[in-house]
Write a protein that binds this DNA or RNA. Sequence first.
DNA 1: CTGAAAGCGCTTACAG
DNA 2: CTGAAAGCGCTTACAG
Lengths: 354, 354
Amino acid sequence: MDQDRSRLNLEEPRRVTIREVARAAGVSVSTASKALNEQGRMSPETRDRVRQIARDVGFRPNAVARALVGKRSFTLGLITNDTYGRFTLPVAAGLASAMASKGVSVFLCAVDDDPARVRLSIEAMEDKRVDGLVIAGKRIDRAPPLENRRPAMPVVYANAATPPEGVGFVPDDKRGGALAARHLLSLGRRRLAHISGPEDFAAVALRAAGWCQVLRDAGLEPYGKSLHGSWSEAFGYETGLFLRERLGTERYPDAVFCGNDQIARGLIDALQVRQIRVPEDIAVVGYDNWDIFARATRPPLTTIDMALTRLGECAGLTLLDMIAGKAVEPGLRKLPCHLVMRQSCGGEQIGDAT
Amino acid sequence: MDQDRSRLNLEEPRRVTIREVARAAGVSVSTASKALNEQGRMSPETRDRVRQIARDVGFRPNAVARALVGKRSFTLGLITNDTYGRFTLPVAAGLASAMASKGVSVFLCAVDDDPARVRLSIEAMEDKRVDGLVIAGKRIDRAPPLENRRPAMPVVYANAATPPEGVGFVPDDKRGGALAARHLLSLGRRRLAHISGPEDFAAVALRAAGWCQVLRDAGLEPYGKSLHGSWSEAFGYETGLFLRERLGTERYPDAVFCGNDQIARGLIDALQVRQIRVPEDIAVVGYDNWDIFARATRPPLTTIDMALTRLGECAGLTLLDMIAGKAVEPGLRKLPCHLVMRQSCGGEQIGDAT
DNA sequence: CTGAAAGCGCTTACAG
DNA sequence: CTGAAAGCGCTTACAG
């Protein structure tokens, strides 16, 4: 056993405790604690001496002990049903990195959509006394199945359905749709078609609503039927092969706004087969700014970015406020999207904003 | 403040402690503890009574207190520099879910490649007394910059460079290359070309080595030069447009093994432009089994799956062994890859293994 | 078989 | 200004 440990360099380092710091400084443990935490009044000399010695011996307070006495663990849980990761990944990255700079660590709980795993995760987070929970999803009208469990700590929702009295953050999809419309109008396009994902997604309706409203404000109607299918290249491709037939229009549209980048890519590939030029004949705007797609499309895709990393940051910072007892209004926060220009719309290329 | 709490349903639930369970059961705290943990000898009656009462009042032991006294936090850290997420995401999912079923939670630390953030993360993990650390990367010949810090707890590397005395898990890329070669040979292909990523990636050399060895054992030489470029569709596409020229061959190959799915997809798109049929004229094998690419390629891609989710699981389970003090041999474990058949090679379609 | 005591490493009133 | 005491919620020897 000792052999094994040494073979793997596992010798437990006997970590230095505050007691040893206190003794080395010739003060009591409580004085050492106060010096280290800048609490209460004390002579600058002893405070500095304690801190210097702590630094010298490499003292680092045991966060577990601190959590036990302080009722704060400086720890958060992230519960997500998006194991596929398209959405949670940027959210998690933004959250973890914003929290790291506040000294807060984040537990990752991947739960699929299994209520039993959700329950287990929440219990684990409760047992470990996390200060708060971020509940993240892959669509804004669903959430991991919490059933009726109300977690014993503050909760913030991120890119997921938020209950009436909860606090949640989602991308402003309506504004995203409006951005796409305004951009295409500004380029002089007038026959504006829309192809999107399944109708039962709230995001689909919101993006379409923002899109339509801008068109109507400009005195236009959406060009042709609005088309719905899976969030896949296959749907975009198959639609692109028979675009006029599907839209029920005589002419081709001169612009298409697609509900995500995959649909946009499939569409563009099919238009190429049909010898239709993008952006000359048809301008295309995608949605998601999923790099790996948007950049690889020929031509590279102009698309809407939902700023999910920022969403993760905001969710975390708000959760920290709630944990600190600050007043936080319940409700849904819609975070701004932005347009990333590449080459699928022509027009001025202001460069790649990513 | 009380208003705020109630508005947000933040009333701190006064969680029940073991002391209350003990009192309700009419025993001492130590007896209650032993009953709950099945430690020591005691009469079945009191044990059952205590446990029943604990269940009734919904007692859940405070994991923080347990960690403090037990020197085990049932907590792991995952440190990754793959914020892009292609590799870490499946690794993290496999790790977190395998650990969850053991009652172990995983902290997510995204560090980019910034040494300062690595140091901060490791210190945070040490302070929080995690039992062990998984260090994950995006390529097998690099790792997050630990500098000379040796973490104060057991470490396992996952899909990252592993130091001589460390324990690491990587996909068996050499065998992956061999699998691709054997598959194409079995389909009767004989002019076998290879296109891969940048030469300085160890994975590139390993895949090529496995590939070449199988060819040589079959009395063949790789067909044409082996080509290297970025891990992108663009490289695959541009190579596909001028395939013979790039390979330096007179005829087209009848099969191409690509270093990743993106290159394969770019290649296939270009071959379509050139009116070359896949798989009839050229069979194509990718690498990664990145769903979103492999399925969307026309035709869907036969490719090598690195089983990264399983890699995350294995890394976690081994780390648990090390934490438990079991003997674990240092060294690199190469985990098997497997071939996923779709339609880019023809041959028997045994179905989609994903 | 059961309980009193000590202790994990820290912080926080409270005396001096 | 400094320290002794109590306590966070548990577990673990050790007596009885």
